[in-house]
Amino acid sequence: MNAFLQGCLLQTTPLLLTSLGGAFCRTAGLVNVGLDAFILVGALAAEVTGAATHSALLGTAAGALAGALGCFLMGSVITGLGANPIVTGLGFNLFSHALCRLLVKTAFGVSGLLLLASCPKLPAVSLPVLGSVDILTLLAWALVLVMTWFLDRTWLGLHLSAAGSEPAMARTVGISAPRMLLFSTVVAGALCGLAGADLSLGIVGAFSDDISSGRGYVALAAFYIGRNRPLPTALTCLFLTALEELATRAQVLNIPVSLAQAFPYISVLVLMLLQTLRTRHRHGGTLS
């Protein structure tokens, strides 16, 4: 039981960090489909820097930096060049995938898995009941609180939500929506980069080009379901991960791997459906 809880908590971390980033972007008015890209970039940067400096913390910082830079680039394409955010996000996902493969291939001569022996693992902290978890897990849950405070209590958070919900109206009081959006992409990118670092320095312990395994997309759904609020989003992430953990354990019960892989996506759809059923109930119907 404890192993299950610990597993859930550990596996939630990258998804949680990513969806917090996504929720932050969404608050500023950007549906960020490119989260996956920045997980990947962050994971690679963390692995390489970690190995080069023999420091997991420096690796983590490098991951966050790389993610922030990448996401900022995406934000600039969207705000500066007026690109469609969804198409651009998808493009960044493919781009970072190709870029990471290319870099790994040219710099290390391997394709697929990159395991650097000199790369340290993330330091762990021992908790009562849950056992040992890595520090990024603690950071992620602390960030849930910090983000709630930030969005509700600070002027920057207020400006962010104002610009996100009604950019034209915000402009009349002197808030620049593009600027808020760019700010949010930097934060979101850094969070995705942290998620990547957590994968390559923690959970997986190596870099591979499918290391994110669609977490960016699931995160997208998670903050939709959590309506961009940090705590509900975090709980959704925890719930989705718990379901997935159950599913992997159920593989013993003869569920084929390929179907089990579809499990998070199906559960996302079911959750969204349940959510609309509740609102539908309140709204009544329409003709046509």
Binding site: W155, H159, V173
Partner: peptide
Amino acid sequence: LGAEPRGRWGQI
């Protein structure tokens, strides 16, 4: 909005 009284940590 846009002219909030601000505290030390940026809180309103």
